[in-house]
């Protein structure tokens, strides 16, 4: 799953692959704004079939947080 999220980050936000680790912070390390994060959430929803609620987006601070959220909410 991490690899898929990583690919989305590379494709959609042109982020350097080497910078994307599980502990990388989305805002300060990867330069993802809150709107980018919403777009990333949308892409992850389409990819994994898991709804990321608007109010939960704020709790996703690192790439690992997204992977964990999807894992926890998969049926």
């Amino acid at each position: 799953m991490f690899e898929t999220i990583k690919n989305i980050l590379i494709e959609e936000f042109a982020i350097d692959a080497d910078m994307i680790t599980e502990s990388a912070r989305l805002d300060t390390d990867l330069g993802i704004s809150s709107l980018d994060l919403a777009e990333l959430a949308f892409r992850c929803e389409s990819e994994f079939g898991v709804e990321i609620k608007d109010e939960d987006i704020a709790t996703l601070l690192t790439v690992g947080d997204i992977a964990n959220y999807i894992d926890d909410n998969r049926q």
Partner: peptide, 8 residues
Amino acid sequence: DSIKNTLR
């Protein structure tokens, strides 16, 4: 309807 759908 959602921040996720802004651009769409």
